[in-house]
């Protein structure tokens, strides 16, 4: 009789232990889901955002009515398939951005920056895309929106580390 009572108590203790294990496991899973979903993304890409903003303000060599177009205006000009003097606006834009990117973001497998990508899209339409180096899993990026006659052009810049 005493043996039966002991066995029953042992079973109850095991059940109690199992319940504690389940409850603690659930708490850990809940905690992990909560902490991983709350990673701070806002502090990413601050330098990239400054670069993008400064690049869009850059004065290109495209002359337009006693003024020169900024890169931001040149992106809109490229989107509208306009001309920049003798050449197409998109050609001038690509040349300007290529020079800026090469001077600003030296990239390579032995350098801190492994690669970069800059592109502009309006809806589904790709306005331009420039990239160099390798794409890695560690990256930071920024975007700017250029309003252009009803549409909006989104310019993205991503640096891969």
């Amino acid at each position: 009789m005493e043996m039966v009572i002991k066995n029953k108590r042992a079973q109850e203790e095991i059940v109690g232990f199992a319940i504690i294990v389940i409850i603690v496991s659930l708490i850990i899973v809940f905690f992990l889901v909560f902490s991983l979903s709350n990673r701070d993304q806002a502090i990413e890409g601050y330098k990239e955002a400054s670069f993008l903003q400064s690049t869009l303000q850059y004065t290109s060599s495209c002359e337009n009515r006693a003024d020169f177009l900024s890169v931001q205006e040149l992106v809109a000009s490229c989107y509208n398939k306009e001309q920049c003097g003798e050449e197409e606006a998109c050609v001038a834009l690509n040349q300007t951005l290529k020079g800026i990117l090469e001077a600003s973001w030296p990239s390579g497998s032995e350098l801190p920056v492994k690669g970069y990508k800059m592109e502009a899209v309006s809806g589904e339409e790709l306005v331009f895309s420039l990239s160099s180096g390798n794409v890695t899993g560690s990256y930071r990026g920024a975007q700017q929106i250029i309003p252009e006659s009803g549409a909006s052009i989104k310019v993205y810049f991503t640096a891969y580390y």
Partner: peptide, 10 residues
């Protein structure tokens, strides 16, 4: 030929 704003990257 005219006065204009010139912005460079730095």
């Amino acid at each position: 030929d005219f006065i204009y704003n010139k912005c460079e990257l730095g």
